[in-house]
Amino acid sequence: MQVDWFFILEKVLLITGVLIISLVVAMYSTWGERKVAGIMQDRLGPNRAGPLGLLQPLADGGKLFFKEEIIPGASNRFLFILGPSLAMTVACMTSAVIPWGDTLTIAGHTVSLQVADVNIGILYIFGVVSLGVYGIMLGGWSSNNKFSLLSSIRAASQIISYELAMGMALIALLMVTGSLSLKDIVEQQRQSGVWNVFVQPLGFIIFLICSFAETNRSPFDLAEAENELNGGYHLEYSSMKLGFFLFAEYINMFISSALMSTLYFGGYHIWGLDSLHVSPNIVTILGTLVLFIKTICFIFFFMWVRWTIPRFRYDQLMRLGWNYLIPIALLNMLITGGWILWHQH
């Protein structure tokens, strides 16, 4: 078997790049979150560490690294450590199937800016997201603390409930695109010039609401409700293990923002980019930039919502998920199916 070293090198570089970018974006999301919170509350936000407080994430990370590590005596030690590691791993895994850009041509080789173009891309994301709850559940349970346990139970039921509506919103999208590959979906939007959000507005709203719930972001942050559960599943955590949990949330936010940009907002496509008279490589890089701008807009949206809307009550959360979102998602599927049939004839 001939080993294609260039291919392996390319993939390794790509994986490293995507990981590093995810981590950096997550790091600066913490800064962004505090800055957005600040300016929305007529404050300045962090501005002491470096210009505009830009070194704040480094300071926070350094602090977390040097904090004392506490493992509760009555906890299950192995699972206690497994919890945050799992949360972090799962958060990083999703980025593998997102097409970060079109292809680059370097020295005669065509390099795809997607780690793995699997033909089940969306299902892969779905699988990984459904595993995300294990980190929270195991962490919460192994802490041997009532609040943590309650929180992990909340998180589990919340994520399972909203996964359904999310899946059904996606099925409607798949009915339109006819492909599970994220690359195909982006290319279709690029060729037709119509972003899926215009085809599936209802589906997008459902997907948006569900991704808030899946990332445990406000107003769905019941799992870490600080006023009733004292922080929930990461109550007993300290040091970098706490950091992992917090970090995983931001990575999840980044990935779901990228996913929403990819699925509904044309990924790396923007009108007029293809008609520019520049080399294809530059078009690709500009496309990647476009995707990142879209993603950052979504991240800002996540933060904007967080600093506007108060948290749901638990029964409200369940009612919204099961009584409203799932029927609406089903209706959306029905409408989409009817629309497709009507177009075929």
């Binding site: 699988g127 997201v129 709850v133 559940m137 589990a156 399972i160």
Partner: peptide, 9 residues
Amino acid sequence: GAIMVLFLF
């Protein structure tokens, strides 16, 4: 993703 989460639950 689903059944085992319920078991654990």
